[in-house]
């Protein structure tokens, strides 16, 4: 049985229209005008235990609305949501006990206090048994290398250190579900790589289900098995990353290092995209000509030192997917 069942979720928001000026404000007192915005328009999916899922979409697409509904802090207008057999908003207190949440922008740790004090307080808030707490804490300290952070006030930590501590804090009560909202935002490259590895590791070893919302597609590429794309309250895609790659018949590039500078002869099915000294970029559509055919054709007609085939970055794939689906 799936761990998370979401069926046909619908949610509208009423946004009040503010009139400008003194008279507008007075009019607003007597009669408020509202505009209805559809945040979720029939979203359906299931997530199994231990999945690591990336959830992407432009701002205002309905990502955070979905996550809020699943967290129990927003009640949908209609539709069904069941997580571990509980309806999140009806049984908020019991539901959130199995939930860990990390916001990249905001820490849940106490700003002015050493990290360990926040951890101790979280232990009491979540009623974590002492032996479980000690076991978890020891593990996180060892794996994430946050030993030296424990006695440091949160405000003095670097962003990378702070996010690691935040992750540890969100996992102290051994949640079955972990929601990560833009966790790597603002981090340096090294911290990002390390952070992704921690997530992947905890997902595998503890079978924690992870739902990751992010704008950084490298996060998704590095750790997610499954990807959901949402826009205007509708799910546009739900499946593997490779399947998306194949679905999008995108163009690839052949990059060649020529022996001499000069205009190369290019197969009519492909096109010369860029020339930079001896380096030449050739764009081709794999549906019209395969990489192998193009390479043999090119080497037959030109003198070549070196060559390789380049995939477009994941960001470009998503961008094209958005484009193809009319996402503005």
């Amino acid at each position: 049985m799936p761990q998370i069942i979401v069926e046909n979720l619908v949610k509208h928001f009423r946004v009040s229209q503010r009139d400008t000026g003194i008279f507008g404000a007075l009019r607003g007192l007597a009669h408020r005008r509202y505009e209805t915005v559809k945040a979720l328009d029939g979203v359906t999916f299931e997530i199994g235990s231990g999945e690591l899922l990336g959830y992407v979409g432009p701002n205002g697409a309905g990502k955070s609305t979905t996550v809020k509904v699943m967290s129990g802090i927003l009640v949908p207008d209609s539709g069904r949501c069941e997580i571990l057999g509980l309806v999140p908003w009806k049984d908020r207190s019991r539901h959130v006990r199995h939930l860990g949440v990390v916001f990249g922008q905001r820490t849940q740790l106490w700003w002015d206090l050493p990290v360990i004090e926040s951890f101790d307080l979280l232990r009491d808030i979540y009623r974590v048994p002492r032996h479980e707490y000690v076991k978890n804490l020891d593990e996180f300290v060892a794996v994430m290398g946050i030993e030296s952070c424990l006695d440091t006030p949160v405000r003095q930590l670097s962003l990378g250190q702070r996010m690691r501590c935040d992750l540890a804090g969100a996992l102290l009560h051994s949640p079955k579900l972990l929601f990560l909202d833009e966790p790597t935002i603002g981090m340096d490259a090294v911290s990002k790589v390390a952070f992704r590895q921690f997530i992947k590791r905890f997902n595998r070893e503890r079978e924690t289900t992870v739902i990751l919302t992010t704008h950084d597609m490298n996060d998704i590429e590095a750790i997610c098995d499954r990807l959901m794309i949402i826009n205007s309250g509708k799910l546009l895609y739900d499946g593997g990353l490779d399947a998306l790659r194949q679905q999008m018949s995108f163009e690839r590039s052949l990059v060649v290092e020529m022996t001499d500078a000069g205009s190369p002869k290019v197969h009519p099915a492909a096109q010369l995209a860029m020339m930079n000294g001896r380096r030449v970029h050739i764009r081709f559509d794999p549906k019209r000509i395969s990489a192998a055919a193009l390479i043999s054709d090119f080497t037959a007609h030109n003198d070549v030192d070196d060559l390789f085939v380049e995939d477009p970055p994941i960001e470009e794939i998503i961008a094209r997917f958005y484009e193809g689906n009319g996402v503005g």
Partner: peptide, 14 residues
Amino acid sequence: KTGDFDRLLLRPRS
């Protein structure tokens, strides 16, 4: 306004 109240809702306490 800042959304910090959501954090309190995410914890199993009143």
